[in-house]
Design a protein around this nucleic acid. Sequence first.
DNA 1: AAGCCGTAGTGGTCGGACCACATCTCTGGC
DNA 2: GCCAGAGATGTGGTCCGACCACTACGGCTT
Lengths: 236, 236
Amino acid sequence: MEQTAPQKGTVTQRAIEQIKAMIGEGLLEPGQRLPTERDLATQLGISRSSMREAIRALTVLGVLEARHGSGIYVTQLNAGDLLETFGVVADLSRGARLVELMEVRRVLESTATALAAARITPEQLAEVELHLAAMAATDDPEEILSHDLAFHRVIATAAGNDTMAAILEGLSSRTFRARVWRGYQEEGAFERTGREHARIHRALVARDPEAARAAAAAHVGEVEAWMRSQLDAEPA
Amino acid sequence: MEQTAPQKGTVTQRAIEQIKAMIGEGLLEPGQRLPTERDLATQLGISRSSMREAIRALTVLGVLEARHGSGIYVTQLNAGDLLETFGVVADLSRGARLVELMEVRRVLESTATALAAARITPEQLAEVELHLAAMAATDDPEEILSHDLAFHRVIATAAGNDTMAAILEGLSSRTFRARVWRGYQEEGAFERTGREHARIHRALVARDPEAARAAAAAHVGEVEAWMRSQLDAEPA
DNA sequence: AAGCCGTAGTGGTCGGACCACATCTCTGGC
DNA sequence: GCCAGAGATGTGGTCCGACCACTACGGCTT
């Protein structure tokens, strides 16, 4: 009697764990192509349907990538691939957790900005200035939001920690930011964010990590404080 | 001609987005029971197989929960539920990204410990001391690891930011920590971590946030530095 | 030699059948 | 009358087989 699978959980869950384990043990390298769904199902002794569910699960986690007509591949397992799901959290959060997320962002963003102050390259600094100018040149909220995101993305990248940058990216996902901004910008917070961005930029130019940390913390803290007030106003 | 679905992406992906949107718009409350798989499939005009893949995807993301024989439910959407996937990232990361993750953990853990110093309750402090004593009382690595995790978990909880605590939890997932410790503890780092824990505890007792921040940063920083050296030693 | 086109192979979708489990209902005995 | 047990019902879990949509490759045509 061969009892290779000790019957724990659903077969799909088992398949997920097994594939994860294969990757963890290095049996499957990033970018590598997996056997076909049909073969995988046979190998693990389950039906193709169940195997497909397992693959779909690992796909949304950013571990696998399915290309129609071609095959299933292991992703590069970059921080960005794996942390994409972080955006889901931000999009589904409301009320108190939004504030908590902003607190996390404040901590990480200020650290990232401080690191960037020490490490940013002239090219990256030029890019920062480009987005800064673009924000000042228009009053289209959509465009401003777009450059705002890019502004912080460049800085996060310049910090040199891809993982941290990926997390911050998730905490700034488009729908998330759009939701916050909707009410925020209507209170004349436009020019203030402009000043704050300028202050961050000055700190980067001066290569002053502490000033950069303070400026970034204040910048995110402003939004955080506003959200806190909103939360108190209508605790629904 | 009704073209409700403008044909973008796979039907499964569309189903995932639609359910996510329903939750985002508040049509589905946390804890609420969804229609049956069969009904949902009919409503969205897709097959049950595809719907099941969508449900499975949202299940691994911690958004939905399927109970065999009972139904499908929206989770409480707690930070813990949604950020459980964060552990996957930690488990699948190697080499440089491990160091990056530790850097993120250092930043968040030091902040959380600082917050805890200001907010921790006597009960929580007693729990901290309990794990501290337990770690000193045994030399079984498994048990020490267990209490080490609990030690930091209590502190993270005491910080009052569930989201931050959930992220730190993911960054300390059992398999992740076990992998790091395997080589780490063999270098006489046992007593050092003991001293570091004691230092964190003293800062908490003294309700000194800055001392707590420094102690936590040093604690995580030690491991981080060790990992960096390992990375340089064998850049494979 | 270059481009076209057919074909085999792959993931994507579908429908149906059956199983395992949870829950409620109805029955029977106490 | 009440409670425990057996049954019926409905649910998610698994499997199968078929077909569609797309990609990639190779041979064919020009």
